[in-house]
Design a protein around this nucleic acid. Sequence first.
DNA 1: GTATACTCTACTAATATAATAGAGATTATA
DNA 2: TATAATCTCTATTATATTAGTAGAGTATAC
Lengths: 146, 146
Amino acid sequence: MKITYKGDYALKTILDLAAHFGNGPVAINDLSRRLDIPTKFLEQILLDLKRAHFVESRRGKIGGYCLSRPPAQITLGEVTRFINGPVEPIACVDKKYSGCHDIGKCVFRDVWAEVNRSTARIIDNVTFEDLLKKSKKINKAFTYQI
Amino acid sequence: MKITYKGDYALKTILDLAAHFGNGPVAINDLSRRLDIPTKFLEQILLDLKRAHFVESRRGKIGGYCLSRPPAQITLGEVTRFINGPVEPIACVDKKYSGCHDIGKCVFRDVWAEVNRSTARIIDNVTFEDLLKKSKKINKAFTYQI
DNA sequence: GTATACTCTACTAATATAATAGAGATTATA
DNA sequence: TATAATCTCTATTATATTAGTAGAGTATAC
Ligand code: FES
Ligand code: FES
């Protein structure tokens, strides 16, 4: 698994929308400014996320984006896979891969499959509600420090 | 972690050299043919592996490559990291990453760090002796089937 | 001295990544 | 209804990475 800028941006965006869940749409410009993501790049990412039904949009004056589902029903794994593709380190874990003559005799495949499982176990069990709670806790701690 | 063709080839090459450990050098051409790796590409990979002291070489008529250390002392993790870089899914786990304003408040970083640890736990505990044993067992099983 | 095999540097084609550009469509509201 | 705000869509671009290829050079056994 490799998280690209696009993937990183998508996750931060979903988290921000999670924080505003239930409070009406959030404009791309607000997200872009708050998260420090190039506006035009974020536009594309949000369109992708919309096509995958992670978010919904509204056009016009009070337009913007909001989550399609409550934060508790969106996992880190889902979003990551959607933007950055499969979690496994090499394609042969899932499907055929021309790299190996005889996939049945390959001793590496099992190891990669184990990496796949162990990664999936982590990222598929973190919801955006979990992340939101954690985020609130951290920000509270910072407030107390000041 | 993402295993490229180069990484995949390197691992297969080390495994083949492990199988011939103690029996003198193996020529690039033999490796190339047996493992179905483009010869000139393999040349480069072997030079890389030599510079990292995974393998040693011998030139001339009975030249070729052999492992610098016994298979039990080379892990899958070492070779993978050398060819395909760090295991973590995003650079910020290790060092600074411009993606996040405030790395101290980032809620994703811990998750990526956990993915890093869990992956490392797997690949750093597999040696090429382990892989070799497994390979021999599989080939035996195939022989019995026939 | 020559065949065999490793060594080294440079080049290339294809793909992915991280944007940027600009015209178009929708909607609240004055 | 005009218009400002906002999302929508298609292209284009610069850079980096990947997966090779090419070819001249060096060492060694016989
Ligand atoms: S089948 Fe995937 S590395 Fe061998
Ligand atoms: S610090 Fe790495 S994703 Fe936030």
